[in-house]
Amino acid sequence: MAADLDRHTVCVVLPYHLYTLARCSSTEVELDLAGPVTLAAVLDALEAAYPMLAGAVRDRATGLRRPLMRFYACQEDQSNLAPDALLPDEVAAGREPLVIVGAIAGG
């Protein structure tokens, strides 16, 4: 695990509605962040780079993952990872993305 204070470039894959809301040209965005690559740190960096995404992934009031949002990395479901837990080294190294997915529910 990469629990150091180095700078990291992390790749995040956004669902259609969020990358269009953020006016990204592609579904993948790269984020630079310092310190441990935790779920909270990545989402903080995402919201800092794209303020219109604040409240879209995490609840504004509680800071918790919105109920129908899911997180995946390295073929694993990271949705219930504690916000301050480290993401896999492959994500911290920028070799694998953190994938944000809207849960399949409804039509």
């Binding site: 809301l21 879209a56 609840d59 504004r60 919105r66 129908l68 949002m69």
Partner: peptide, 8 residues
């Protein structure tokens, strides 16, 4: 608005 992505 969206049940998934909240309020804009």
């Amino acid at each position: 608005t969206s049940s998934w992505f909240g309020q804009v």
